[in-house]
Computed example of a mutant assay.
Amino acid sequence: MSAMKIKKGDTVKVIAGKDKGKDGKVLAVNVKDNTVVVENVNMVTKHAKPSAANQNGGIVTKEAPLHISNVMLVVDGKATRVGFKMDGDKKVRFAKATGKTID
């Protein structure tokens, strides 16, 4: 399996789907399904039964997963593709638009 180009905490821009153009922070990455959950993007409504955490139940809005191919990493306010290179003996991500090392 190849390494994920998007990580939790990254800022991404949605490039396809109903929320195209929106930016947000990655809250979760699912490597198995190749999906990401982005803050305030792809909001869906769920009907929740009353529980200990939610006393009243009712209709709750939450973020749903997006396929990772529908988001692009934002570096310095610009959406860019991501590549990998070796920095000494460590593999690091870099922005293809600027060549800048990300982490």
Rank of each mutant, 00 (worst) to 15 (best):
S2I: 10
A3H: 15
M4Y: 13
I6V: 13
K7A: 12
K8H: 04
V12C: 02
K13M: 13
V14C: 03
V14I: 11
A16K: 14
A16N: 14
G17L: 13
K18L: 14
D19K: 13
K20V: 15
G21K: 02
G21T: 06
K22Y: 12
D23C: 15
L27P: 03
L27Y: 05
N30W: 15
V31W: 09
V31F: 13
T35S: 07
V36E: 00
N40I: 08
V41T: 00
V41L: 00
N42C: 07
M43C: 04
V44I: 14
V44T: 08
V44L: 08
V44K: 11
T45R: 07
T45H: 07
K46S: 10
H47R: 13
H47E: 15
A53H: 08
Q55L: 14
G57N: 10
G58S: 07
I59D: 09
I59S: 05
V60E: 11
K62I: 06
P65D: 08
H67I: 07
H67W: 05
I68C: 03
S69P: 01
S69F: 05
S69L: 04
N70S: 08
N70K: 11
V71S: 01
V71P: 00
M72Q: 12
L73A: 03
D76M: 01
G77P: 04
T80V: 02
T80Q: 01
R81P: 01
R81V: 01
G83H: 09
G83Y: 10
G88K: 03
D89L: 12
A95E: 01
T98C: 00
T98N: 00
G99H: 06
K100N: 05
T101F: 10
I102H: 06
